[in-house]
Every structure is written in structure tokens, then in C-alpha cells.
Design a protein around this nucleic acid. Structure first.
Lengths: 222, 222
DNA sequence: GTATGATTTTATGCATTTCCGAAAAACAAT
DNA sequence: ATTGTTTTTCGGAAATGCATAAAATCATAC
């Protein structure tokens, strides 16, 4: 299921598209406006964004600019105003395609697949605060400069990323990284890697804001 | 001047588009039908093909299939029949965009630029620094002189090329080149070929700038 | 049959990382 | 405060992953 973010304030369009795209193996999440879209992009990772130009709060253009600057995700504009000016402006902002309503669902699917094909190789970037994780390039950076994570540090960070907000028990973390044929490593190894990650990620490793300890339960990424 | 091939049998459209696109810094060559298109593609190099579906001899779909198979060039369908079936069929053949007549010239230009942006890196000849890879001839050259890559070295380079920027795991590389009926070769074979490629490609093989090692994760071409 | 080049394997060295034990610190409960 | 538990820190030993050289195998043409 390819995760897609649909930014659209018309509820009925949202519901119809979500249902239809589901049958085509896309996992659609709806955001009614700029605000919600920004929050979802912070929290989760998407492969593509479908963007309505006319939103209640702000317009699609500014959302597009943000998405391109922050996450580099492919964007397809989805809009009623099919006038030439909009089309050109949309492309100038780095949109990857532009579909005028009313559009035929099957054409939309074709265009989504097409854009995904053309942009594959573009990174799937997730942001947490000023930390940037690019799962395609296999890098994590802070304020643009590479953090030089080791392979294990990187994998550990990924686990936190995929369970954003949840408390992860030490056992669970050990299992997901060190479970080689049921043989675990020393429990303390995890602790050491938590420290390493903090040293590299946190502004102040003494007072972690990203990887928090939940005493007795484990750790979590808020 | 970006060279574009326009395959279109309506003379007046040809002339108008040629003139207009010229003002946008595109160098348009017209072919009235399948026959002429094939000959021109043989003789010259184009960056993109604008393709009318309804041609006097044969139809645009078969031309598209041929272009994609033989030259791998980006294709934009340009057509009167905007029915859904055609759109989907066009994309299925590997078209990169689809514009229904009548279209606005400025939108066409936007879409051309957009497709060129998205497909840059495809094309028959790709450059990385001072390395030139010609996927039609199957050769790679540095500063104009042939690098004399062996078949495997060349194929390995192609894998990197097709995943520019991404970290490619050793397993993935082994699979894409040495996976003969699930039987892998010695894991170190890959290492050796990485070295061979570096020796031929890099200015200073000791300090690679093209094929970088990402310890624990794999290699990547930045 | 030998000569040439491509491919694969073997062997070795080096650098980084991963791992662990033990001590120190932080925390919770009495 | 005292005690016991959990978490953090530290340094060095062990393991791993990668680079390199050189030898062995295979294919092809001469």
C-alpha cells in the first residue's frame, strides 16, 4: 500500500478518492487544510501528495513550496481552476503534475503511477525537529550536515521513526535489531547505542528532547 | 536549444508549434508520420518527443513503444482524443505525460520542461562528472576516451546509475547482477568489482568521489 | 594448443564498529 | 537519609566489514 497524503477541504471528494484509491492499492490519508497537512507530514512518511489549490486556510501553492523545500516529495495539483496561469504557476513551484477537476479517476491513478515512476529515486525524507532522515540515501542530517551515523545507530533511529510516539521497551528494541536466531546481545549494548544516538542527535545529550527515557518501560520518540 | 521531435501530420499545428517553441528555446523538428519519425530518430539525437496519436501511417502508440524500447526518450502524447481509455493506454506504454487538444501553448511548455526535469538522468547519454555513459552504445568514457569497461563492470555501473543517490546494499547489488537461479557468487566478488570500477572511473581510486562506501549499508553514487 | 582477457576465489591487512564488564550516577521507595 | 533498582557512562577487547593483491578458473579467439 503506497501511502498518499490528500490535502483537500471538500469532504465528499476526500471520501470518494480515499475509497477509490484504496482499491488501487494506495493508502490515502486526508488533511483538510494547510495546518493538518503540515502536522501529518511531520509525523508520518508519504510517497506522494495530492494537493488541492483552494484550501480554507492558506492556498495550495504555499503548501507545495513547503513540501518541496522540506520533504522533496512528489506533488500533484488537483484543482477546479484549470486556467492556464494556475497550471504554469504550479509547475514553477516544482509540482510534478497538474490535473483539472473534474478528472476521471482512472486517469488520476495513471498520473499518480506515472509521477511515482518518474520520481522514484527521489528520497523519502522524514523530519523530526531539525533532524532529517532520508531512508533512500541512508543518511541522517542535522541542519543540513550529515550526522555520520553508524549502520546500527541508523537502524535504531529507524525503529524509533517507525513507532513515533510509542514507548518502546528495551526487549522490543533488542528484538528488532539484535534478534539473530533468537540470540540476543548483552542488554547493556542497547543502552550504549541510545547514548551514542543522543550524543549525535540531541542539542544537549544530558537533557534529551528526542529520545526520552521512560523509566521502567523503555524509550520513546515524542 | 533543446532538440525536440514533433510527430504530427497536421501541417498547421506543426508550423505553429515549431514557431512558438522556438521562442521558448526549443529546437523543433517535424515528422509527419511513423516512417519519417523513425528515420529522424536514427539520424539525430533528441531530448524529447511530442507525439500525436492519430497519424496517417500507423498510430502513435506503436511509435511510442518503439521510441521507448530503442531510444528510451521521454514522450509526451499530444492528442485530440482525450477519452480516458487513450490516456491510460498512453501511460501504460511508458509515455511521460499526456496533453489533450486543444491545449494552451504555455501549459505545453510547462509540461515539456517538467518532463525534462523529471526524466533528466534517463536519456541515452548520461554524464556524471567527467564520466560519460552511453546506454545505446554500451560504453563509458572519461574525458572522451573509452574506459574499456568489461561487461560486468558496465552492468554494475548501470545499476548505480539507475539508482543515483540511493544507498545500494551489497545484497541488492549481488542480486541484480549475480542472481543466477538464486545462486549467488562469493560475496567478495562484488568488492573486487567495486574496486575495478573505481580504478577505472575515479581520479584517485584511494579517495573515491563517485562510488562511495557506506559502511554497514552498502555503496552509493552521489 | 596457447594466448589473452574476463571472472571468480583465496588470502591478508587494516580500520571501524560493535560489544561487554564494571563503576558511577540518577531515580524511586522506604 | 538509606537502600535497592534502574539507567548512564567509560574504556578497551573482540568481531566485523571492507580494501587490496595475487592466484585460480573460465571463455574466446588466434
Amino acid at each position: 500500500m503506497t501511502p498518499i497524503l490528500l490535502v483537500e477541504d471538500d469532504r465528499s471528494i476526500c471520501e470518494n478518492l480515499t475509497a477509490f484509491l484504496k482499491t488501487e492499492d494506495f493508502d490515502v490519508t486526508c488533511a483538510p487544510g494547510q495546518q493538518g497537512a503540515a502536522e501529518l507530514l511531520q509525523k508520518r512518511t508519504f510517497a506522494l501528495v495530492l494537493l488541492d489549490i483552494s484550501l480554507a486556510d492558506g492556498n495550495g501553492f504555499s503548501v507545495c513550496r513547503e513540501i518541496k523545500a522540506e520533504y522533496g516529495l512528489p506533488v500533484i495539483f488537483l484543482t477546479a481552476s484549470s486556467d492556464e496561469y494556475s497550471t504554469v504557476a504550479g509547475f514553477d513551484l516544482g509540482a510534478d503534475d497538474y490535473i483539472a477537476k473534474p478528472f476521471r479517476p482512472r486517469e488520476l491513478v495513471s498520473r499518480i503511477r506515472n509521477v511515482l515512476r518518474l520520481t522514484s529515486g527521489a528520497g523519502a525524507v522524514t523530519k523530526i525537529g531539525d533532524i532529517c532522515i532520508d531512508t533512500v540515501r541512508g543518511t541522517a542530517s542535522k541542519n543540513g550536515c550529515d550526522l555520520n551515523l553508524s549502520a546500527l545507530e541508523y537502524r535504531l533511529l529507524l525503529v524509533f521513526l517507525n513507532h513515533r510516539g510509542a514507548v518502546l521497551s528495551r526487549t522490543m528494541l533488542l528484538e528488532s535489531i539484535w534478534d539473530i536466531a533468537g540470540e540476543f546481545v548483552n542488554d547493556n549494548t542497547l543502552t550504549v547505542y541510545i547514548k551514542r544516538l543522543r550524543d549525535k542527535l540531541e542539542d544537549d545529550p544530558q537533557d534529551p528532547k528526542l529520545i526520552l527515557t521512560v523509566r521502567g518501560l523503555g524509550y520513546k520518540l515524542p
